[in-house]
Amino acid sequence: MNINNNQLWVKVIKKVRAWARLNSIWAVHFNSGSCNGCDIEILATLTPRYDVERFGIKLEGSPRHADILIVTGPVTRQARERLLRTYEQMPEPKFVVSVGSCSVSGGVFHGCYNVGGSVDEVIPVDVFIPGCPPRPEAIIDGIIQLLTHLKDGNPRPARKEQIIERGVA
């Protein structure tokens, strides 16, 4: 079938799809070697005080159900394989949020013998949330920034394609 992008029903379906994606975000949380500080802040984000379910954000157990992957901590040599595999298991469209200074740059663990480096050396990251650990407000703000970016019609924040190739190789 020949689908013309300017037809009304195509536009409407695209609008509805974009609306649904923005309003229903299921996250899966992966700890790639964090000291647990960031993980506790993520839990705090889910608790009644901050309650992200009002934005439609929900923590899911299975990467197959998730839309965004929240990674905390530097990528240790052991976790690297698992992080890649978890990322590969997620269905498209998928986004990665890296939470905490460690996942952004390696943080205090930078240069450790057992640490491979930051998250964006392994998988493409869409939003970086610095802080050690970032407050729940910062985490919510990071996710909302991702959403507003998507809402403006951009496919996703700039990706470092060459980094994935280097990471997978």
């Binding site: 609306w19 009002r54 439609g56």
Partner: peptide, 17 residues
Amino acid sequence: QNRVGPRWFQPIADVIK
């Protein structure tokens, strides 16, 4: 649980997504 909870269209958005 003393939370605000999801908005009314949440299940619909979930399913469409």
